[in-house]
């Protein structure tokens, strides 16, 4: 599923002070490094090791991920909506590549 892109779901609008749910998912094999191929050689670890979400440039959610996280990880969290702005999401892969997504919310 490595070819799949990141997807995010955020309500388009929210009332000021409302608690909104932010849902994210990304297609990724999350190869743990613990498995062996059919010749007995270890399959190298390749996982997303960091997730970061910023809102209007300010960090609002960060998490470090480890090999026990499943393939195609789904993550949701909540935020109190206080102002209109843009979410930016970044998933950092072991190989250094970063998958990105954005979403906008209008508060008022």
């Amino acid at each position: 599923m490595t070819q799949s892109t990141a997807r995010v779901k955020v309500p388009a609008t929210a009332a000021k002070g409302e608690i909104v749910e932010i849902k994210t998912t990304i297609g990724h094999d999350m190869e743990s490094g613990q498995r062996k191929d059919k010749d007995g050689n270890p399959i190298p670890r390749k996982i997303i090791n960091k997730f970061l979400c910023t809102f209007n440039g300010k960090e609002i959610f960060r998490s470090d991920w480890y090999p026990a996280i499943s393939a195609n990880p789904y993550l949701s969290f909540f935020m109190r909506a206080t102002e209109t702005g843009r979410f930016e999401f970044a998933w950092t892969d072991d190989d250094g590549s970063v998958a990105k997504a954005t979403a906008d919310i209008t508060v008022g």
Binding site: M1, Q3, S4, R7, K9, K23, T25, G27, N72, Y74
Partner: peptide, 15 residues
């Protein structure tokens, strides 16, 4: 549809 992991394969199939 967002939480359903099967949709990742639907995307692959669409491509």
């Amino acid at each position: 549809d967002f939480a359903n992991p099967g949709m990742l394969w639907v995307e692959t199939g669409e491509k």
